[in-house]
Amino acid sequence: MDANRPGFARGPWFTMNAVLELDGALDHSALAAAFHELQRRHDVLRTEIVDQSQLIHLAPTAELELVDAVETHAEVPLAAPVRLRLAGNRLALHLHHMIADPVTLWTTLDELAMLYSNPDAPPPAAQYSDYTLNEAALVERQRGPASDWWQARLTDAKPCPQPPPQPANPFAYREQLLTPHELAAVDQRTRQQRSTPLVTLLAALAAGMTPYVGAGDTLVFATLFSKRDRPQWQRVLGPCIVPSALAIPRDADIPAVREAVVGCSRYARFPILEADVPTRAPFFEYVPQNWPSGYHFGPVHATVAAVAGPKDTGLADILGIRLRPTTDNALTGHFSGDGTDWTEHLVSQLCSGTRTHLLSQSEKR
């Protein structure tokens, strides 16, 4: 990632961030002790990435920071990949994305609150190293079937070329795709089809893209799959996500898209570089709204006030589409690109076509 976008993946803004609102005052010493114990219990929070090496420090590398104000984003150096900042009734946690995924963000806060309330809480059931060793074994066991599946879905298929290159400017912007009322209708249609929001949105996105891509039978996206599919991995801290591809039949109906998504997820662990993925495949991600209801630091209740992923540093790459429902149940998208093939004007047309498809399908219920 950093080779394609120098300074992005290794930079201090490639972070996972959450800000909590507190309904009371926290004991600074107890919070600092809980934060120290949290790092001691998890190797991944004491990890430094240097070139191709992973260094695990013996002692915690970060201290609680008492500040005047906290922001949603904060710089996090790879030498100390976790920061905890307290300003009055606001507590902010920042994790470098190299060592964290969204589940890690929430689980870290949950365990921090638990250690604040009970310093003698039981130790974690597993370390991230246990997860990675298990993943390596799964990759080897699945290599044959996965290779055959990706061969049929990608190598033997005819991926649709992206729009012809044309001079344009990089772009990055947010836009609401559906109002809360419209999203509720789409969700109802999704349930009637016994499908998922991811599948529904992909089918609509494929319909919106079809007029602008070249001849072929398959639309290919780059994406990420969460792989916490065993009970012991549910509370492991670390990036339990796999970069993979989504190979969606062009002009496919919901059952065909669902079948494609299931297969892509099943074989996502197969190293993506061994599959014949088009180099300009757009990135697509659907992020469900899954903020926790809150945390208890002893008698103090904390609610989630803000969440953010990596900060937009202006390092535009291939077309990126990230869709998520908001707290008021509207559907928004973050769209970015270098303008090489998918220009901002073309993406605007794509959004219009995707929205039209979603609304027309929901009206059929």
Results as ranks from 00 to 15, higher is better:
residue 5 R to D: 08
residue 8 F to H: 13
residue 13 W to F: 04
residue 13 W to H: 04
residue 15 T to D: 04
residue 16 M to L: 12
residue 18 A to W: 00
residue 21 E to H: 13
residue 29 S to W: 00
residue 29 S to D: 03
residue 29 S to T: 02
residue 30 A to G: 03
residue 35 F to K: 00
residue 43 D to S: 10
residue 43 D to H: 06
residue 44 V to I: 15
residue 45 L to F: 01
residue 52 Q to W: 14
residue 58 L to T: 15
residue 61 T to G: 09
residue 63 E to Y: 01
residue 68 D to I: 04
residue 74 A to S: 12
residue 78 L to K: 08
residue 83 R to K: 05
residue 87 A to Y: 00
residue 87 A to W: 00
residue 91 L to W: 00
residue 95 L to G: 01
residue 99 I to E: 03
residue 101 D to E: 02
residue 104 T to Y: 01
residue 105 L to R: 04
residue 111 E to V: 03
residue 111 E to K: 02
residue 114 M to A: 13
residue 117 S to K: 00
residue 121 A to H: 00
residue 122 P to K: 04
residue 123 P to M: 07
residue 127 Q to R: 07
residue 129 S to A: 15
residue 130 D to C: 10
residue 132 T to V: 05
residue 133 L to Y: 05
residue 134 N to E: 15
residue 140 E to D: 05
residue 146 A to F: 01
residue 147 S to R: 12
residue 147 S to M: 10
residue 148 D to P: 08
residue 155 T to F: 03
residue 157 A to V: 01
residue 158 K to G: 11
residue 159 P to E: 05
residue 160 C to G: 11
residue 161 P to W: 03
residue 165 P to N: 10
residue 167 P to V: 12
residue 168 A to R: 07
residue 169 N to C: 14
residue 170 P to H: 06
residue 173 Y to I: 07
residue 174 R to E: 10
residue 175 E to A: 15
residue 176 Q to W: 07
residue 179 T to L: 13
residue 179 T to Q: 13
residue 186 V to M: 03
residue 188 Q to D: 14
residue 189 R to D: 06
residue 189 R to L: 10
residue 192 Q to G: 13
residue 192 Q to V: 07
residue 193 Q to F: 08
residue 195 S to Y: 05
residue 195 S to G: 12
residue 195 S to M: 08
residue 202 L to H: 02
residue 203 A to P: 02
residue 210 T to Q: 15
residue 211 P to Y: 01
residue 211 P to A: 03
residue 214 G to E: 00
residue 223 T to L: 12
residue 230 R to T: 11
residue 235 R to V: 11
residue 238 G to F: 04
residue 238 G to H: 06
residue 238 G to T: 07
residue 239 P to G: 07
residue 243 P to C: 11
residue 246 L to T: 08
residue 248 I to T: 08
residue 249 P to K: 02
residue 250 R to N: 11
residue 254 I to K: 06
residue 257 V to D: 04
residue 259 E to W: 03
residue 263 G to P: 01
residue 263 G to L: 01
residue 265 S to Y: 11
residue 266 R to C: 08
residue 267 Y to I: 08
residue 268 A to S: 15
residue 271 P to F: 02
residue 276 D to L: 10
residue 284 F to L: 12
residue 285 E to Q: 15
residue 289 Q to N: 13
residue 291 W to H: 14
residue 301 H to M: 12
residue 302 A to V: 03
residue 303 T to G: 13
residue 305 A to L: 07
residue 305 A to H: 05
residue 308 A to Y: 02
residue 308 A to C: 06
residue 308 A to S: 09
residue 312 D to S: 12
residue 312 D to Y: 07
residue 318 I to T: 09
residue 322 R to N: 15
residue 325 P to F: 04
residue 329 N to L: 09
residue 330 A to G: 14
residue 331 L to T: 08
residue 337 G to H: 02
residue 338 D to A: 14
residue 339 G to A: 10
residue 340 T to V: 14
residue 342 W to H: 09
residue 344 E to S: 11
residue 347 V to C: 14
residue 347 V to D: 13
residue 348 S to R: 06
residue 354 T to P: 04
residue 358 L to H: 06
